[in-house]
């Protein structure tokens, strides 16, 4: 989806934060937020791709209100989808924890997705031979799916060169929607900065790993 998460190349976010050796969690609630998010796919009977897609669906203003906030809301959205909790329940419980005597709604009926897994992790073998080889010129397709994709906007329609074949893996775009693992070949594709950002761009190269369905041959 063309959502708030797809920030590559956007302007207006200002200075980068200072580099500090800060520990992974600041406030105590962030520890619990991390654990709930990390366990949420197991609780909801889903997968990592679905969790990423749930975070993408966090409303933009909430998405931009801190990492652990969007992480927690993403986990909640995914658990709502699986009928584990409802937003009304969470809000009612939050009110009660704050000392307000509000009625609590009935819990939902669990409705976990059913997607057989080909095994642990995400790396898979693909029988058919790869469509592209190292050195091939390829173009990132101009796709705008409504659902989950790992093809960011800033490379769509741009031409680059395959520099490596990565291990083939579960296809995020289908797995996130429980439409099957659908494993795909995956390629490191290198783009010249001027192809992405115009002739005035800083000189550098951008390498990104793209699944085969995202790529078209350049003829």
């Amino acid at each position: 989806m063309d959502g708030i998460h797809d920030v590559g190349g956007m302007q207006g976010f200002g200075h980068v934060q200072e580099l500090t050796p800060a520990p992974p969690f600041g406030e105590p609630w962030e520890r619990k937020a991390f654990a709930i998010g990390a366990l949420s796919a197991r609780i909801a009977g889903t997968n990592l791709h679905a969790f990423r897609h749930a975070i993408e669906r966090v409303p933009p203003q909430e998405y931009l209100s801190g990492y652990w906030n969007r992480w927690t809301i993403g986990a909640q959205i995914m658990m709502e989808d699986s009928g584990i909790v409802t937003d009304e329940e969470v809000r009612a419980r939050a009110a009660r924890l704050s000392g307000r005597d509000v009625p609590e709604p009935q819990p939902p009926t669990p409705n976990k997705p059913q997607m057989p897994s080909g095994g642990a992790g995400n790396l898979r073998s693909v029988e058919r031979p790869p469509a592209f080889a190292v050195g091939d010129r390829v173009r990132a397709a101009d796709l705008h799916p409504a659902g989950h994709t790992r093809l960011p906007r800033y490379v769509r329609g741009r031409a680059g060169t395959v520099t490596a074949l990565q291990p083939s893996a579960v296809f995020s775009d289908t797995a996130a929607h429980f439409l099957g693992e659908n494993p795909q070949h995956c390629y490191a594709v290198e783009f010249d900065s001027r192809e992405l950002w115009g002739q005035e761009a800083e000189p550098f190269s951008l390498s990104i790993d793209l699944f085969e369905p995202y790529l078209e041959p350049v003829t």
Partner: peptide, 17 residues
């Protein structure tokens, strides 16, 4: 939806789960 304090949301979720 109204913004819920993240610390409170986490407590509410943890309590329900």
């Amino acid at each position: 939806a109204e913004h819920l304090d993240p610390a409170l949301r986490v407590e509410a979720l943890a309590s329900l789960l």
